[in-house]
Nucleic acid binder design. Structure first.
Lengths: 233, 233
DNA sequence: CATTTTACATAGTACGTGCAATGAAAATGG
DNA sequence: CCATTTTCATTGCACGTACTATGTAAAATG
């Protein structure tokens, strides 16, 4: 389905007052959102390669001039998608943390944590980000461009992850090394689920059980890791 | 490093008898291997996008005519990589199974299984296959080409996986649904590790520990799943 | 209402990419 | 040693893609 059909499907039948005098910020926000949505949709439906500039304009219903104005170019769209995805992810984790009553049991905290994380990794936007980063990051180091964009998103995402982690599970003391290992394992599994969904074209059939299995694994690793048990390396 | 430098680094200094009268099968095998190796290397180093036909000929040291002759075109190379990767994977698992003495303990069997599986998922060839499939499979369903190539590699890989699985762990009876779930979970984690390695550009720092954690998880799930315990859905 | 700024539209273009077409060299087989 | 097949090399080209350049409409500003 084309994004352009979402908001103005019947606009052809109502030619009177087609544009009800929208304000600039409204226009700006809507076209930006349409471009981003169209790009994400296209990447998920036909893949990164085939998501061309023409395809984006076709799906979004806007012209290339709009893209140029708002994002500068195609790279601008892709960068914005990755950035938004990451920001919403941090916000979502923080929100899940806030909405949790004080002194919730460890398994329950793990549950909400994994669920909130999957809210991110399971989204179409993350899948798009994944393809974008994959297509971009590998080639970036070849060009020897050390920084330029979001100064190594990897460190950023790891930092945010660790921050939330420590706030959610303050009593844990597994040692820095083991903590990072379990974090990386969790990300691997969740991102792996997302990437397999990309390859299969449909969500994993046993998704819920797999998330439960991950929770169980985390719970097991956390058990017996109360304050003071960790050994730093 | 260029693949073309591997075998004929000093050939410029020994112009006499440059080509010691190789047989056809030798020539064929070598150039094919060089092309495949160059493509895999390129995908891992500079990414799928930048792995152009020119880049492949540059790294392999052969011309486009050779590629055309052996693979028909670029798609031929990519397809061969995926196919070879999958075949070697099945062979590797089977071999690991054969080399295992009768009545090995369950944890040890799990260990060799995970290690053998990572031998596959951790290889540069798999990472290349992953990018190829990602770039190709998503766009294929958009073009509505139901079969054509290896008739849904997904089913094939799942079948082979299940086949080995049942030979390695014949006493398990978790029920079909739960078995498939755990398989998918294992693939997700391993493939996730591989994809994160692609994004990071370097192998995961805690790889060994993460594999151990996966083994532990599997062992725990298998425990108490002797013959007759499974419940079919 | 006039002016300035912002938001979008249209047409043309430079460039990379994969490949077709053709030919030469190398090996095989008699 | 010759004919045939296999293997590899060269050149030119059609095509898609992202983008530049420039023009127009719409909203803000006073």
């Amino acid at each position: 389905m084309l994004v352009s059909e979402m908001a103005e499907t019947h606009s052809l039948r109502l030619p009177e007052r087609r544009r009800p005098r929208r304000t600039q910020v409204e226009r700006r926000a809507e076209t930006r959102a349409r471009i981003l949505a169209a790009t994400i949709e296209s990447i998920n439906e036909i893949g990164y390669q085939r998501t061309t500039s023409a395809e984006i304009t076709r799906r979004s219903g806007v012209t290339w001039g709009a893209v140029q104005h708002h994002f500068g170019g195609k790279d601008g769209i892709l960068g914005a998608i990755v950035e938004d995805s990451f920001n919403d992810f941090s916000a979502g984790l923080a929100e899940a943390f806030e909405s949790l009553p004080r002194k919730t049991s460890l398994p329950r905290r793990i549950g909400t944590f994994v669920d909130a994380a999957w809210e991110h990794f399971g989204s179409a936007r993350y899948r798009a980000s994944f393809e974008i980063l994959l297509a971009d990051s590998v080639s970036r180091e070849a060009r020897a461009e050390p920084e330029r964009n979001d100064l190594s998103w990897q460190n950023e995402i790891l930092k945010a992850w660790t921050r939330i982690w420590h706030r959610l599970f303050p009593e844990l003391d597994l040692g820095r090394r083991r903590t990072l290992m379990i974090q990386h394992y969790t990300i691997s599994t969740l991102s792996g689920l997302a990437s397999l969904q990309l390859l299969a074209g449909k969500p994993p059939p046993f998704l819920r059980d797999e998330l439960e299995l991950l929770k169980k694994t985390l719970a097991r690793e956390f058990r017996g890791a109360g304050s003071g048990n960790g050994k730093e390396d």
